[in-house]
Computed example of a mutant assay.
Amino acid sequence: MHSDPVQPRSIQRLASVIRLLPEKREEYLRLHADPWPEVMATLKRVGVSNYSIFLHGDLLFSYLEFSGDSWKDAQAEIARDPHTQAWWAQTDPCQTPVQGALPGEWWSAMKPVFLLE
């Protein structure tokens, strides 16, 4: 009897941008030099991998890969995590949405325009 091979989950590549407040730059960089293991574990548990944040001037660019079933559900699970809530209480005051952000949007989603695999 032949069974079908397990199909790998598709990976979503997600990028977003936010502005770093200049007066909070050193604090933000210090926090991210030693991220909390509990926060990292939550991200991994929901299917986040290859997560990077880059800095250009006062813009933070985030890139991650998501391999779960629903990014919306994963975001909700991340937001329920008490360690992540405490992390955000420290990192959010360092940031402000970019010009043109949608109402209520914190990190603004970026549209993919090119991919080389």
Rank of each mutant, 00 (worst) to 15 (best):
M1V: 12
H2W: 11
D4G: 02
P5N: 08
Q7S: 00
P8I: 08
R9A: 14
I11H: 06
Q12L: 13
R13Y: 10
A15E: 05
V17C: 08
V17L: 07
I18N: 05
K24G: 09
E26V: 01
E26N: 00
L29Y: 02
R30F: 06
R30M: 14
A33Y: 08
D34W: 10
P35Y: 10
P35D: 12
W36A: 10
P37N: 07
P37A: 13
E38T: 03
E38H: 03
K44I: 06
V46G: 08
V46S: 07
V48Y: 03
V48A: 10
N50Y: 03
N50I: 01
Y51P: 01
G57T: 02
D58C: 00
L60S: 04
F61P: 00
F61Q: 08
S62G: 10
L64R: 02
F66A: 05
F66M: 07
F66I: 06
S67I: 00
G68C: 05
G68M: 04
W71S: 04
D73E: 07
D73A: 09
A74M: 06
Q75N: 03
A76V: 01
A76Q: 05
A76L: 07
D81F: 05
P82M: 07
A86N: 09
A86E: 15
A86M: 09
A86Y: 08
W87V: 07
W87P: 07
W88G: 09
W88D: 15
A89G: 10
Q90F: 14
D92R: 15
D92G: 09
C94M: 10
T96G: 11
P97C: 12
V98A: 13
V98Y: 13
G104Q: 07
G104K: 04
W106A: 15
W107N: 14
S108M: 15
S108E: 14
M110S: 14
M110F: 12
K111R: 14
P112N: 06
P112A: 09
V113H: 12
F114T: 12
L115Q: 13
L115E: 13
L115F: 04
L116M: 07
